[in-house]
Design a protein around this nucleic acid. Structure first.
Length: 467
RNA sequence: GGGCGGGUGGCGAAGAGGCUAACGCUGUGGUCUGCAAAAUCACCAUUCACCGGUUCGAAUCCGGUCCCGCCCUCCA
C-alpha cells in the first residue's frame, strides 16, 4: 500500500496562496504523481488510502492513546507524551538528552515536554477541519501513517519504506504512536532510500520540486531513467545530471543490443524453445540467474544484480558471434539463454518498449530523401530521382517542386519504420553498385538526424537514437 | 553543538575479515567491415580519504584526524 497525506500544513498554505480547496489541490498533485510514476513503470499499490478519508479511525486511535496515558489534551490540541514511551529514539539512534541538547526552536510552553508532538491540531480560521471530542481540528502529521498502515496491513507488518530524511522525527513518531497503542512491534524492517538530487539539488515528494522528474522524462526515455534509478543501491544517494543519464543510456543500450542481436539471430521475438539443450551457455545462464536472485534477495541490491545481467549479456553476445544461424541447436541454446536474460531484465523492468519514440524524427528523415532527390535531379540522374518520388507518393506523401526547392506534404505522418527500411535498402543498392560515396553520405546524414545504420551479416540494421 | 550515513580507478558504482577489488561509461590495441557502426578479444586500481591499532590475514573490525551529505520544527 502507499498512502497519501492530503491534509497538512504545506498543502493548506499552498491552497491558500492559490485560492484553491486543499483537498482538491492534493488530489491534483496525486494525479500528477501517478503520471510520472506510471511513466517509470512503477506498479500501482493495491491500496492508496488518504488521510481525509480516515478521520474517524484517527480520532479513535487518539482517544485510545489518551485513555492509556500516552497522550494529553491542551486547549483543543492533543500531544503525544514522549516520556511515556521509553523506547523513543530507537530507530534514529537518539536519546531524549540528545534532542533536548539540540533543541533550537522556541518551545511551545503549553506542552509538557518540548519533544512532545501533535496528534490533533485545533483548526485555525480558514483551515479545513473535522469535528472531534476536542473540538474542530485536523490530524497532526505522523498519526495518519500509523493509523492507515496498521488498519490495512495489521498491527505488525514487514516493510515500511520512505526517504532517509523521514527517519526522524516522522518514522520515530510513527513507531511511538503505533507501539504505544497496540503494544506490539510496528514494523519488522525499515527501508530508507538515499536522497535523490538533481544537479546536486535535493528532490523530495514535497510539493514543488518533484516535477523535475517530468523535465528529465521529457529529455530521456523512461527506461533509461528507470535503469539509472536501479543502477545504484536504493540506500545510496543518487544525483541526476545529463552526463550520468547519457551514460545510463549507453549502458542500457548495451543490454538492449543483446536482445536485438538475439531477435535477429532467431528470426523473431519468440525466444521460448521446447528443446532443452545441454550447453555451456545455458549453464552459465543458470548460474548468473542464481546470483542475480541472490543479489536481489540481499536487501534489493539491484546494482549488483545488474552486474550479473551485463555478464550474461556478454556471454550471449559472444555465443552469437561464434554461432551458426543455420544450425537448429545453436538457435535452441540461444533461445533458452535469452529467455533467462529477458526474464531477469523484466524483473527490473528495464526492457520497456520505446519503439514509438522515434516517430517525431520522420520529418528530418523525409528531408534527407528530398535533398537526395534534388541532388539526383541536378546530376540528371532521373531514374534515382523518380524512384524516390515514387516511393514517397506510394506512401501518400506529395512532392512539390518549386522554384526555390522542393517540399513534401502529407496528411498523416508515415511510419518511420517503412521509410528507414526503404532507405536501408536504397543504401544497400548503392553499395552493390560500388557507389560508396552516395552510401556513406546517406549514412552520415541519417546519423545527423539521429538514425544509425549498421551493416551486419544478416543485413542492414537501423536504430533511432532517442533524445 | 548533538545524532545518523558516507569517502573505492579518469568518471559512475558493487564489495563489509581470506578467491585475480564485480559491473557500466571513457580510453588503448587486435578481429570483423569497402570504410564505419555494432559485436568480439585483450589491456586500463600492488590498492580502497589520512594516521595508528587488532589479526596469520583488513577496502572490510577498533581508535583518532580531515572532508561530504542528511537530520535535530506542531514541515508529509
Amino acid at each position: 500500500m502507499q498512502n497519501f497525506t492530503d491534509v497538512d500544513d504545506k498543502i493548506i498554505n499552498r491552497a491558500r496562496e492559490e485560492g484553491d480547496d486543499p483537498i482538491k489541490l492534493a488530489e491534483h498533485y496525486i494525479h500528477e504523481y501517478f503520471i510520472d510514476a506510471d511513466a517509470l513503470g512503477i506498479n500501482r499499490a493495491d491500496i492508496h488510502p488518504r488521510v481525509s478519508e480516515h478521520i474517524p479511525q484517527i480520532i479513535a486511535v487518539i482517544e485510545g492513546l489518551i485513555a492509556k496515558g500516552y497522550a494529553y489534551e491542551v486547549d483543543g490540541d492533543v500531544y503525544f507524551r514522549v516520556k511515556s514511551f521509553p523506547e523513543y529514539g530507537k530507530l534514529s539512534g537518539r536519546s531524549l538528552d540528545d534532542m533536548l541538547a539540540g533543541a533550537r526552536v522556541e518551545i511551545d510552553e503549553r506542552k509538557e515536554a518540548p519533544v512532545d508532538f501533535a496528534l490533533w491540531k485545533q483548526a485555525k480560521p480558514g483551515e479545513p477541519y473535522w469535528g472531534s471530542p476536542w473540538g474542530a481540528g485536523r490530524p497532526g502529521w505522523h498519526i495518519e501513517c500509523s493509523v492507515m498502515s496498521t488498519q490495512y496491513l495489521g498491527e505488525t507488518f514487514d516493510i515500511h519504506g520512505g526517504g532517509a530524511d523521514l527517519i526522524f522525527p516522522h518514522h520515530e513518531n510513527e513507531i511511538a504512536q503505533a507501539e504505544a497503542y497496540t503494544g506490539k512491534p510496528f514494523v519488522n524492517y525499515w527501508m530508507h532510500n538515499g536522497f535523490i538530487t538533481v544537479n546536486s539539488e535535493k528532490m523530495s515528494k514535497s510539493l514543488g520540486n518533484f516535477f523535475i522528474l517530468r523535465d528529465i522524462l521529457a529529455r530521456f526515455p523512461q527506461d533509461v531513467v528507470r535503469y539509472y534509478l536501479i543502477a545504484t543501491h536504493y540506500r545510496s544517494p543518487l544525483d541526476f545530471d545529463d552526463g550520468k543519464l547519457e551514460e545510463a543510456r549507453k549502458a542500457l543500450g548495451r543490454l538492449k543490443t543483446t536482445m536485438l542481436l538475439a531477435e535477429e539471430f532467431l528470426g523473431g521475438t519468440e525466444f521460448r524453445t521446447t528443446a532443452v539443450v545441454e550447453a555451456e551457455l545455458i549453464t552459465r545462464g543458470m548460474e548468473l540467474q542464481e546470483k542475480f536472485i541472490g543479489a536481489m534477495d540481499d536487501d534489493f541490491n539491484s546494482a549488483k544484480a545488474l552486474g550479473y545481467l551485463f555478464e550474461l549479456s556478454h556471454q550471449i553476445n559472444a555465443f552469437i558471434a561464434g554461432a551458426d544461424y543455420n544450425r537448429e541447436t545453436d538457435k535452441a541454446i540461444l533461445g533458452q539463454a535469452v529467455e533467462i536474460f529477458h526474464n531477469l531484465g523484466g524483473v527490473l523492468g528495464i526492457f520497456m518498449d520505446t519503439k514509438t519514440v522515434g516517430q517525431h524524427r520522420v520529418d528530418d528523415v523525409l528531408s534527407i530523401i528530398l535533398d537526395m532527390r534534388d541532388g539526383a535531379r541536378q546530376d540528371k540522374n532521373y531514374a534515382l530521382a523518380d524512384s524516390l518520388r515514387d516511393f514517397l507518393n506510394h506512401h501518400h506523401i506529395k512532392v512539390e517542386d518549386k522554384a526555390n526547392g522542393s517540399q513534401v506534404r502529407y496528411e498523416k505522418a508515415p511510419e518511420i519504420d517503412e521509410i528507414l527500411n526503404f532507405l536501408s535498402a536504397l543504401r544497400q543498392n548503392f553499395k552493390v553498385n560500388k557507389e560508396y560515396e552516395r552510401a556513406d553520405r546517406l549514412r552520415e546524414e541519417l546519423k545527423n538526424a539521429g538514425v544509425t545504420l549498421k551493416d551486419t551479416k544478416e543485413g542492414v540494421r537501423w536504430k533511432i537514437v532517442d533524445t
